[in-house]
Write a protein that binds this DNA or RNA. Structure first.
Lengths: 236, 236
DNA sequence: AACTCCTCTTGACATTTATCAACTGATATA
DNA sequence: TATATCAGTTGATAAATGTCAAGAGGAGTT
């Protein structure tokens, strides 16, 4: 761990929507108080309920945001480069609502929440960017909550596959982005049920071998999945 | 409908966290472009997917925020006085993700989204308040999503009752705030299942007659419900 | 009182989802 | 080569939840 973000990482952070419009001096001030650290896989970065002292920026690797209650655990979201997470908790100085653990070797910048709040007060571009980011996060959770309440597990899987396909810009073949047990948890079902959901989607031309997904009849799958921009579009 | 918010309503709006800290001139500017309107019950104020031209402030009555997909409908949240709704869509100029309908006779202020964005740029207090409000909304959805994924329907009902009891500051007896069919939808279950969940909670000292709820053994219910601040506390 | 409308409840049943245990297949390792 | 490990799958079964149809109980109306 070292104080101040090294030259090599700074441009990656700067490029984020959250930081791209702000004043140079303000950005430098933010970076001066920040750390960058490399973490091995499966490290718990954040535990829900703890005070939120840092805004996290993931530079490489990936991070699972998950929650626990009464001995049960569920995956809430995945953070990937280059983006921030737990912005809301940082801004409010409120305890984290979700825990975070690295899924793979990851490089992460930690910016003191107090610095974020200070710069927020003096930089209108930054303030606007924070608002945009928060609004984006909010709408993203609303969409996943809608999906949970309105779709069966098989429908969630079908639409997830279509979203993944669109995101990686793939044709009929692409790879799952992480292990199936986590995908199951993310989609709100058990691993056993995910297997059965995949098998059920064979009727609509979906096959899986290991991590490889093949969609043989796009139209047919879409007819079943009924994707909707107000749930499935990442923006909008 | 009339242009400009009347004297009688203005203080109610001003009192909101979102507006309480801002400059007088800026507040007046916001109010000048705003409407106030009275709506009868069961009026659809907003339809999801439409462009978000106004920030809504509910002055009296109550509003149901709900969503639809593939012929299914679910209640996502209830807006009550005095608070705003669909702030995120207004800020982003993005389409509404949820529809809104009045549950009862309601008085609602409509502030043009463009005005909100303009004042945001020149009033730092207002900007900070918007960020705080958005962060609050975000955390609120995260909590309800956690509850959906981690709790069974009976557990959700038990914890909902405890939250309602705390909110209305009641002892062992209090009234449900709206009809059971909507409560069921809000909690993510069918009306039939809500009935059975209530019956199941009799084992923990909960009885219902009409809208009247009686909790005869607080400890026992809490032992079953296992409320958790990171899901059930409205603030934090 | 009789009727209507409505929400809520109940019972029977179907579907969905979870649980548990066993098994498969791939990978790594000794 | 044998073995251990682990994610994933499968089957049997259980539990949770949804669906459908019928009935109970209120509130208002005629």
């Amino acid at each position: 761990m070292r104080l101040g973000i090294p030259e090599s990482d700074s441009p990656d952070v700067r490029r984020l929507d959250l930081f791209s419009g702000m004043d140079d001096a303000h950005f430098s001030a933010l970076m001066r108080g920040a750390y960058v650290q490399n973490f091995p896989p499966q490290i718990e970065l954040i535990t829900e309920g703890e005070p939120s002292d840092f805004l996290h920026v993931i530079l490489s690797g990936s991070v699972d945001l998950f929650s626990v209650w009464n001995g049960r655990e569920t995956s809430m979201a995945t953070a990937r480069p280059v983006s921030t997470f737990i912005l809301a908790a940082s801004i409010k100085s409120a305890p984290y609502l979700m825990s975070a653990r690295t899924l793979e070797k990851s490089r992460i910048a930690l910016i003191p929440s107090q610095d974020v709040r200070n710069i927020f007060d003096v930089d209108n571009f930054f303030a606007r960017a924070i608002v945009a980011e928060l609004a984006q996060c909010y709408r993203s959770v609303v969409k996943t909550k809608k999906e949970l309440k309105l779709r069966t597990s098989q429908e969630r899987l079908a639409n997830y596959l279509l979203r993944l396909q669109a995101r990686v810009g793939a044709g009929s073949q692409f790879d799952l982005e992480f292990e199936k047990r986590r995908l199951a948890s993310y989609l709100g079902m058990t691993p056993e049920n995910l297997s059965r959901a995949f098998r059920g989607l064979q009727a609509y031309g979906v096959t899986v071998q290991g991590n490889r997904v093949n969609i043989s009849d796009q139209q047919d799958l879409e007819r079943f999945a009924k994707p909707n921009p107000l749930i499935d579009d990442p923006d909008s």
